[in-house]
């Protein structure tokens, strides 16, 4: 994964999605409150939030489906929904589940969609549809009407619809919904492949693990507010502490206590033996000193943060609202 420095300024990279003070009120309820999204070209952006946090409303506003109460949206460098005609042909999207005409086959569904604003000449339509179906693993789909599809198949069909054109931006709302683990893996591989080919992926999900596995950048929405937005690397960056695992826990502790420049927070994990967290140490230097003193070291590494902890710290309210991988929506 390419790591963009956190400190990079707006001028260095092109913004694919940028919102400014984006707000949506439904009557008295503020669903989205002053959100400033910043998605850069080449990102796999994870848009994380509990159900009801305003994710879907935000996604719909990006696509011009829901009209913002106030604030500005820029997608692919042009204002939305004002330039929808220019912007949307370069965007593929899956919003809250696929939509299909139940009496038509998957192929006919795609053909109908293609006819509503062709992504290419008509004679290449069949080929384009075949390619899209191939990519999502529906190449061998038969003429059954879409109403006979499983949820997973329909999800793949929706993804194929989004891929009918070669989009510069893919906006996907809960794309792995209804897929089995194998399917989830396939989709993840597909998305990463597309991303390598230059497609920016905006992935909205309530599944932390899904985001953590794929994304290069994360935004967290909580109660309609964007409480966190940063590069994944930065979020999972070193904490400044060094983790030391050793069977000789007491000796190590004693030794470290003699070093006035270090601060030790230790915990003992009974199954794996001792674990010490040392603040203020330079890992290589610490290792040398421990080994020199005859303390056996199983593992010594700079400690990194977990996305889960970061997210939980950023969101004020209940922890149970974030599902883990596999939890249903």
């Amino acid at each position: 994964m390419s790591a963009t420095p956190t400190s990079a300024t707006a001028d260095d990279v092109r913004r694919v999605i940028r919102t400014d003070a984006l707000t949506k009120r439904f009557g008295r309820v503020t669903a989205v409150d002053a959100v400033a999204l910043d998605v850069r070209e080449g990102d796999v952006y994870g848009f994380l939030g509990a159900n009801g946090s305003g994710k879907t409303t935000t996604v719909r506003m990006l696509l011009g489906l829901v009209l913002a109460t106030s604030g500005d949206i820029e997608v692919l460098g042009e204002p939305m929904p004002g330039s929808a005609r220019a912007v949307l042909p370069r965007v593929g999207a899956l919003v809250e589940g696929p939509g299909t005409y139940p009496h038509l086959s998957g192929r006919a569904n795609l053909a109908l969609l293609d006819a509503t604003g062709a992504d290419g000449p008509r004679r290449t339509r069949t080929r384009r549809i075949d390619e899209a179906l191939e990519r999502v693993g529906l190449a061998s789909v038969d003429g059954r009407p879409a109403r006979a599809y499983s949820l997973g198949m329909r999800q793949r069909l929706g993804l194929a619809a989004a891929l009918l054109r070669r989009p510069d931006l893919l906006v996907l709302d809960e794309p792995t919904n209804g897929l089995d683990p194998q399917g989830i893996h396939e989709i993840r591989t597909l998305l990463l492949e597309l991303n390598r080919e230059g497609t920016t992926v905006f992935l909205s999900s309530h599944l932390l693990a899904e985001i953590e596995q794929m994304c290069t950048r994360v935004g967290v929405l909580d109660g309609g507010r964007l409480v966190l937005q940063d590069q994944m690397d930065a979020l999972r960056g070193p904490t400044g502490r060094t983790e030391v695992r050793t069977p000789d826990l007491e000796e190590a502790r004693r030794l470290l206590a003699t070093m006035p420049d270090l601060e030790v927070e230790s915990t003992v994990d009974e199954h794996e033996g001792g674990r010490l967290l040392v603040r203020g140490a330079e890992p290589a230097d610490l290792n040398a000193r421990l080994v020199e003193a005859g303390v056996r070291v199983t593992l010594l590494s700079p400690e990194r943060r977990h996305l889960e902890d970061v997210v939980l710290a950023a969101t004020t309210s209940g922890t149970d609202r974030f599902g883990r991988a596999g939890a249903s929506a």
Partner: peptide, 8 residues
Amino acid sequence: RYLLIRPV
């Protein structure tokens, strides 16, 4: 929604 984001 898919028709509208074609965009139609």
